[in-house]
Amino acid sequence: MNRKEFLVSLGSAIFFAILPGFMKPGRNNSSLIIRPPGSLEEDKFSLFCIRCGQCIRTCPSRCLKQVEIKKSLNHWATPEIIPRQKGCILCQNCSKVCPTGAIRTVDQDRIKIGTAMIYKQECLVWTHKKECLVCLEFCPVQAIYLDEKGRPIVNPGICVGCGLCEQNCPVPKKDAAIRVSTAGERRFHIVDGKYY
């Protein structure tokens, strides 16, 4: 390779390396992405994650999916949980196979990947006055309880955000009446090596 060819190669490499930065698809909506338990803090996660897909392959409940390119280019092909499709069973298999440590094993009782919230206007019990205790039955940590009128309420202090309630919510819509968001999630911070 002569000097001219090298410079042309370098120029085209710089162009193609920068090009994705000018593409539009939501670059900063990472706060909407629910990560597997034990994930690094978000700004480090997408740097450590090499998109090998090992976590997705190993997930026994098949709750981990790849972030689609149209959702976020920065986080494309990184793992995310879409609770409406499948909830997490908190087995931490993903942390055992992650080759770079983007997902790490944490104490089972400290896991928190988000918090569930009830959308009362869509809930069968709250608005439609029907009997339904599905979310309460599926909650593995008993974070949902009933008020004096028999309506479900989430205790955000206990909820781990696994999404089993959202997955099984019988509301016949795309969005469930109980939805998990990343609010209150705990992440692994590599600077001090702690999970909070």
Binding site: A17, I18, P20, G21, M23, R27, S46, L47, N74, W76
Partner: peptide, 10 residues
């Protein structure tokens, strides 16, 4: 570019 300018890593 991804590490220093937060551009997507491809």
């Amino acid at each position: 570019f991804s590490g220093f300018l937060s551009l997507p890593f491809i």
